[in-house]
Design a protein around this nucleic acid. Structure first.
Lengths: 198, 198
DNA sequence: TCAAAACGTTAACAAAAGATAAGGAATTTG
DNA sequence: CAAATTCCTTATCTTTTGTTAACGTTTTGA
């Protein structure tokens, strides 16, 4: 996908949050970067400040930690979603997680520095605050649902939920990633699947 | 605590996010309500749209679901924190959880309607967008940490974390609430505590 | 103030999950 | 294309958690 097309797709999806007029869009665009993250390359790494928030035009990433030598995959992002190590990006402190491309992934990025410039640019400030608010609220809601599922549901129930709503994750992610995403081991998920079949 | 004092405390803490000049503050104040929620009364209930976001001046609340006849406490808010059934408030859809006062609790509230009025009032719009963004980002980070603890930590590790950082929760909440907050049963938490002592 | 309810611990047993290892199928990669 | 790696399942055994119930203590509230 070329840069023009990517920017067009981005603008299209952005309109869920804010609509720029042409003059604003031209300035906004100057603060964007377009890049391809090759498969297995990192968008974020522990100990390193995550400088960008990205919008995935094509591809997918996974978020993972390493615990006792093992990779624990906690989250995924796909096309038309944002990706960032949010805490690291928002506070400009070292990331705690890896974010890795699972396929060649094309991203429109906004660096923290450019975001600050736009938040301080009178022409864009209001819409950027609004944009930031709506995106943060969107993810706040996602996380609220997810925390609530850990509190009130068993792993088996979380898997059943995923069967209803997790099309992308189920179809595109290997099962051992999904297991960790649900908070259990791959062996345990395999057993849950067998239990459900009966 | 009287209304004046409560508003003063609120303004003080708000300055973490935004600073109003006097003219703005006077208008902003007109969109606030001050009320006391008696112990055991509800700030939010399942099936009912949560109309307010509250700032707790004094007191504490717990968030809980009912599952198979049992109350599962998932979260708490204390003095100088916000309280809301966020998804319900942000989307004006029915709440999924109860939010109940654990003590007589004094709140400064902003109704969804008043928030919209302020977001559409040119005098306040920019600062309100910014306020909304910063609050949402704050809670986004809290939730990110919490999800990550469910993915990468055992219940015992989550309890040990709480011993380090959860002063308010540990000192003011009964242990069976804490257990559910950690995603386990009260019996299990009691065992973990014994394990740790040895 | 006094009975009822709530709370935390413990015990016993059942159910689920974790750890480890083995084996076969599928996929990757040099 | 062949070797290596990844992936999922299954089995075994251990550990942890869930469930239920009992008991004594503390707190609540009529």
């Amino acid at each position: 996908m070329d840069t023009q097309k990517a920017l067009y797709v981005f603008r299209e999806h952005l309109e869920r949050y804010i609509v720029f007029n042409e003059a604003e869009w031209i300035v906004f665009m100057q603060h964007l970067t377009f890049r391809t993250l090759k498969k297995k390359r990192y968008f974020a790494e522990p100990g390193i400040v995550c400088k960008d928030i990205g919008f995935i035009v094509k591809g997918a990433v996974r978020y993972y930690h390493i615990k006792e030598g093992e990779e624990i995959t906690g989250y995924f992002s796909f096309e038309n979603e944002f990706v960032s190590s949010y805490k690291s990006y928002l506070t400009q402190s070292p990331s705690l997680t890896y974010i890795q491309a699972l396929e060649d992934t094309e991203l429109v990025g906004i660096s923290h520095k450019d975001m600050q410039l736009m938040l301080n640019n009178p022409m864009l400030a209001y819409k950027m605050e609004r944009f930031g608010r709506l995106v943060a609220e969107h993810y706040l809601i996602c996380y609220e649902d997810r925390v609530s599922s850990f509190i009130t549901k068993t792993p088996e129930e979380r898997y059943l939920d995923l069967l209803n709503t997790g099309r992308d994750i189920l179809q595109r992610m290997p099962q051992h990633y999904i297991a960790h995403y649900l908070g259990i081991t791959p062996v345990s998920l395999s057993r849950i699947r067998r239990r459900i079949l009966v």
